[in-house]
Write a protein that binds this DNA or RNA. Structure first.
Lengths: 210, 210
DNA sequence: TCATTTATAAACAATAGTGTCGATAAGATA
DNA sequence: TATCTTATCGACACTATTGTTTATAAATGA
């Protein structure tokens, strides 16, 4: 109500899809910024520029919003990783780039924290099951191939290679998640601080996989 | 106030140390049962058999209790590992018991989830604490020794061995944390379900460490 | 233009979780 | 025994968060 009478802030009316997307994005921003305890609908609403009752209108409840956020989050993460897999044409053993990208996506972008949050709340991530399976199959095939490449002349039974591939994938995934969450703390405790040490570790880890 | 007039429930007065230990144990129980989100002081107080104001008296605030719980967990974990190391007359490469213990404590007791939860909330655990450092140094020394044992006749520079020991410890820690958080989900996705597969993976992992 | 739908908002109600305060009793100490 | 300290408790207060209700305004279609 100052002299420079601002044009009356018009009420923006979005489509439900738009509104949900807007709110989810705000929620993700908030989650990345302050962690899971910052996920109150009022705070999220403030970021999105709406009132908290608008959120309730679109998602039903605060908890439902969180579930939706978790699902949305996993979908996006899988997309990211899938793109990384598709982009790398070189095979694993010699080239660490794919592994590095996985770490990047999970750790450096804060995705591991979001993923961890979804895991911690025990939400069942059935959403995108098909996508997940497709992704996993691609990765698995690539790793099996890498195992054979690393084996050179030695004969490796199909069973053995496939099982080992599962182990490797599981190891990389758990390590990346753990690294993304507790990395800074553990690095400090163990004396591996700094980007140099981080890179060294990842190289060491990659070289040891096959 | 029934006919069978029970002896008036006397008020138990504990030493601060005892009280804190009692409360921390109750918190641990609660954590294991319902996860980090169930860590409200009233619930914990009910388990411990005290009132929530008693908790506030001893820990200052609910948040401080949670931090104390996480710190206590890390310390116990290191202590525990150290004991296993001291107990085992065999060194790492052949004996996987130490590694298994780490996974057990972090994964099976829900401690990884607590750690992750604490991290996600941005609470900084004092990682440089003297007690922790002392414990860590011992563990580190043990791992260095194991590296040399694994190397056999080959000469390993001190620098190299010590650095590699840090890598190994970091890898085990991050993997165990990631396993504790995302393990069940990832195992299902990757096709490594069941205690048998879990054990196989941990053996495979241990065998590959040195 | 009018009617209908519904996304948005503001005010209110309800509850849960944390923290405060004063009183009491269990040990410790003299 | 008498006194002091403080661990414990119970009741209350406060705040944050969620959820409800009613009203309004922005689209949509007739």
């Amino acid at each position: 109500m100052t002299a420079t009478a601002a044009t009356k802030p018009k009420r923006i009316r979005r489509s439900p899809a738009e509104a949900r997307a807007l709110i989810l994005k705000a929620a993700q921003t908030r989650l990345k910024a302050v962690g899971p305890e910052g996920l109150q609908i009022k705070e999220i609403a403030a970021i999105a520029g709406v009132t908290h009752s608008t959120i309730l209108h679109h998602f039903g409840s605060a908890e439902d919003l969180r579930v939706a956020l978790a699902e949305n989050m996993v979908e996006k993460l899988l997309d990211d990783i899938l793109r990384v897999m598709d982009a790398g044409e070189t095979v694993f053993p010699e080239d660490h780039s794919v592994l590095f990208r996985v770490f990047e996506v999970l750790t450096d972008d804060g995705n591991a924290r979001l993923l961890a949050w979804t895991m911690l709340r025990g939400a069942d991530l059935r959403a995108g099951e098909d996508t997940l399976m497709a992704l996993f199959d691609k990765i698995h095939a690539g790793v099996v191939q890498a195992i054979r490449a690393a084996a050179g002349d030695m004969v490796v039974k199909d069973e053995v290679a496939e099982r080992q591939a599962r182990f490797i994938i599981y190891l990389v995934a758990t390590t990346a998640v753990g690294d993304g969450i507790a990395g800074p703390y553990l690095a400090r405790l163990i004396g591996l601080e700094g980007t140099e040490a981080t890179k060294d570790f990842r190289d060491w880890f990659a070289a040891r996989l096959f």
